[in-house]
Design a protein around this nucleic acid. Structure first.
Lengths: 198, 198
DNA sequence: GGAGAATACGAGCGAGTGCTCGTATTTGTC
DNA sequence: GACAAATACGAGCACTCGCTCGTATTCTCC
């Protein structure tokens, strides 16, 4: 158990930033640890001073994303009465910051949006998935108190999946096309959720 | 340009079948050409008698899938009046055989359902994507003649994306849960398309 | 049955991977 | 300033990858 110095903390941030960039460009498997080190401006050996292996980098990145998403949620939902908000506004209040987050963190989708992660990575992003599922399930329960738990969970899973599927399209587009696709995402969610939580 | 014998054709089928299985289990990158050869019961050298490289295998597989899908479409739509069918039934008539196809060809999603394919693979599956987009666009145009072409294309893209996103969930489940998720897929499509092609 | 083409083999190539290790330098603490 | 801990380096290890090549076998066709 080594005690990190300020310099070490900064290096870890450098490495994670470099890894996120690289993953965003080429995907997890295609990025070598030597490439990450080079992009971070350090040697391969130094990288392993801070992370046990490549998966550990993904894990740390997923953790950082989870924390940022938690902050995002707090900021967006503070003071709003989720149970009372019209569905339109609820969807808008959730998707808008999510799109912003994905635009600002383009490495996110490389870890989160893939349907078939390598087994090692599955472990790394499982907490992130679980946290999101729990959050959305809770929200749905508040809006539709009568629905059975297993139905709530299935509905939440599908809703998350829909957002995951649309996000790459939205991020890849820009200008008017991006705005249009954001509208489509809201329409999809509205069409799916309206019968459940009118 | 070598002339294939019957034996050679059979070998190519063996190889494609082995590759599809392996891709379904582990994903494209994680599968080595030596593993494909071993699963097909041949040597690495023999594999390259029939395919120029790994991407070529994916390309051939994508081609085969495209042909099978085309047949599927013909079988499902023959004699039905697509313009007149109620939306519910139209969606059912399309999604049901699609689910069957994905269950029977579990390697399909490894080539088609991923948002971030390696560049080489993008070329291999591009024709498949284009064919599907064209088919769905044409269908939407028939159902909603007044809509602008760029809107039709965007709607088709989104609809395809929704199916792509839901399919792994459906295939991974079974029994009652699979049936429920199929229902969710229909609900998603209905909710999204109803305002466009009521 | 003989010639040429197609099919088959499998050891092993060059390149690239994730990662290590011996060594050198910088930092915090007294 | 001394000493240990933390940080930094980068050549190179063991391994796997996609793929090749020399050689051997089997098929087709006259």
């Amino acid at each position: 158990m080594t005690k990190r110095q300020a310099r070490g903390q900064a290096r870890m941030e450098q490495i994670l930033a470099a890894a996120a960039e690289a993953f965003a460009e080429s995907g997890y498997e295609a990025v070598s640890t030597n490439t990450i080190a080079a992009r971070a401006g350090i040697s391969p050996g130094s990288l392993y001073q801070f992370f046990a292996n490549k998966d550990d980098i993904a894990r740390a990145l997923a953790e950082r994303y989870a924390a940022q998403l938690a902050e995002l949620r707090s900021a967006a939902f503070d003071g709003a009465d989720l149970a009372a908000l019209p569905l339109d506004q609820l969807i808008g209040a959730i998707t808008a910051p999510l799109v912003q987050f994905n635009l600002a963190n383009r490495g996110f989708k490389a870890l989160f949006a893939r349907p078939d992660l390598p087994p090692s990575l599955t472990t790394a992003v499982a907490p992130l998935h679980a946290a999101l599922l729990g959050r959305v399930s809770a929200l749905l329960s508040v809006r539709a108190p009568g629905v059975a738990p297993d139905v709530v969970e299935r509905t939440a899973t599908v809703a998350i999946q829909l957002v995951r599927a649309m996000m790459p399209l939205i991020v890849a587009a820009d200008g008017a096309e991006r705005a249009a696709l954001e509208g489509e995402l809201r329409a999809v969610l509205h069409g799916y959720l309206e019968p459940v939580i009118g």
